[in-house]
């Protein structure tokens, strides 16, 4: 038992640094990916010829290939194209690739949610003389966004777990830090991986709980006291 405490004490600073990195990367990917995905999803929902197909291609390429392959493309292939703007560090490559990957899932969720809002809502607003953008902003999106909450939590948890893949391009996130720790304590492989898994769980579980709470919060209708 004392041995395990010693191991923990020795690796804790590294795991903490790894967790901070994981937290940071996932946060950026979730934020940037959500904004990008939201814009693409809204644009796609409008069924504008060409634009719809173009973004569709973007989404299906990203969803139809493994994230690991995308990461290699962003880290190894793009910087070799000779384009100045793509000469990025491994950290930037990680941020960009994970954000882009996230956006493909968010875009599909947002478009599906917009499509789920009954056509009658569009019709009623149109018949009242509202233009397309106010209809989208005031009538359709407020209803659609509620519907995105449950599927979005699944995506976010997936993104958090996928940050582990970033270890292959040398991002010193949680999994990478764990592997370094294992080199120091090779006989405690199982224990260290167990600790890492626990840290991921402690991070992901509140995200799932939070969305459950948010779902109730936005889904519930209550009578508004107008006086």
């Amino acid at each position: 038992m004392q041995h395990y405490f010693d191991v923990i004490a020795a690796i804790l600073p590294f795991l903490w640094a790894g967790f901070v990195q994981t937290f940071w990367v996932s946060l950026v990917a979730i934020a940037a990916g959500s904004v990008l995905g939201f814009l693409i999803g809204v644009a796609r929902s409008q069924r504008i010829p060409l634009l719809h197909q173009l973004f569709g291609l973007y989404i299906h390429i990203l969803r139809g290939t493994p994230f690991l392959v995308q990461l290699y493309v962003f880290y190894f292939v793009l910087p070799n194209t000779g384009i100045e703007a793509l000469q990025w560090s491994s950290e930037t490559a990680a941020f960009v690739s994970l954000s882009v990957y996230t956006s493909s899932y968010v875009a599909e969720i947002v478009m599906a949610a917009i499509d789920t809002v009954p056509a009658g809502q569009w019709e009623a607003a149109t018949a009242l003389g509202l233009k397309r953008l106010p209809i989208l902003g005031l009538v359709v999106l407020p209803q659609a966004l509620k519907l995105t909450v449950p599927p979005m939590s699944g995506v976010y948890v997936n993104i958090i777990k996928n940050t582990a893949i970033l270890s292959v391009i040398g991002i010193s996130e949680l999994t990478r830090q764990g592997e370094i720790s294992i080199m120091r304590f090779p006989s405690d492989v199982l224990f260290i991986y167990g600790v890492i898994a626990l840290v991921y769980f402690v991070y992901c579980y509140p995200v799932l709980r939070f969305t459950r709470w948010a779902e109730r919060k936005v889904g519930g209708t209550r009578v508004v006291n107008l006086d």
Binding site: P118, G120, Q121, E123, A124, A125, T126, A127, L128, G129, L130, L138, V139, P142, Q143, K146, V224, L226
Partner: peptide, 27 residues
């Protein structure tokens, strides 16, 4: 034109995320 032609639907089509009062206020 549409703003001067009122329309009432079979399935009402009220804005689900707004109160009755807000439905009348918004447009």
């Amino acid at each position: 034109l549409r703003s001067e032609v009122g329309m009432v639907f079979q399935l009402f089509n009220l804005f689900q995320h707004r109160t009755a009062l807000d439905n009348v206020v918004l447009p």
